[in-house]
Amino acid sequence: MSCAINARGLRFGYPGGGQALRGIDLHVGHGERVALLGPNGAGKTTFMLHLNALLQGEGELEVAGLEVTKKNVAALRARVGLVFQDPDDQLFMPTVEEDVAFGPMNLGLDGEAVTARVAGALAAVRMGHVASRAPYQLSMGERRRVAIATVLAMEPALLVLDEPSANLDPRARRELLEILEGVERTMLVTTHDLPLAAELCERAVILAGGAVVADGPCHELLADAELLGAHDLELPAGFRLDGLDLRPRPSAQPL
């Protein structure tokens, strides 16, 4: 059966640098929402960049039903939506509309289909009213939402978000969380924002030193203060996991 992510012994070293990934084993089924946690330098971003072949390491990696190889690059980029941490890196076109249209046009869609995708994606992040604005005229929260729209417009099977709540004020963070909760896709979210992980994801994976050191239900992992502490993670002081309103969990089904 195909799966969203299947990694076996994935290793990667940066040229001239240390080993960033030291044999990652991870299986993610369709429809799952997985939080990828870990301290800085754990290899989270490096792993993310492997998912659509921006980096290629040794070992086995299958994403969205495709083996990650040179010949599958175009198909992988259509199926895996990567949202980068800094929206200023993600939004490079002069206007929001053109930026959201960039991905669908690369997929070879025609004008009308592109327009429909742009409108749909911007509506999904409630940013339809800024279509003709330039990215620098938007607030950080708005930019982040548009960055997500640029990827949603490609209708990926797997959505990968790098630190989606970084640099957001509480209200923008709350709005982002609500939007992400409404997105029905397999999701891999790297974050240091453990409460966000607790609310959004049913499963968590802790990465440390380039390998998976814990994998299980998000609430169980986050309740284990000793485990978190061992990997330089901690919940905000006074935070109670049992006080969270949990969203309905999607059932893990093949898309």
Binding site: L49, A74, F84, M154
Partner: peptide, 23 residues
């Protein structure tokens, strides 16, 4: 550094060396 990251972001959305034609 930003140039490198922007290029990665472009590749991630299927950029293949030519900018897509607009309407």
């Amino acid at each position: 550094g930003r140039g490198e990251r922007v290029y990665l972001a472009m590749l991630a959305r299927g950029y293949n060396g030519t900018m897509p034609q607009r309407v």
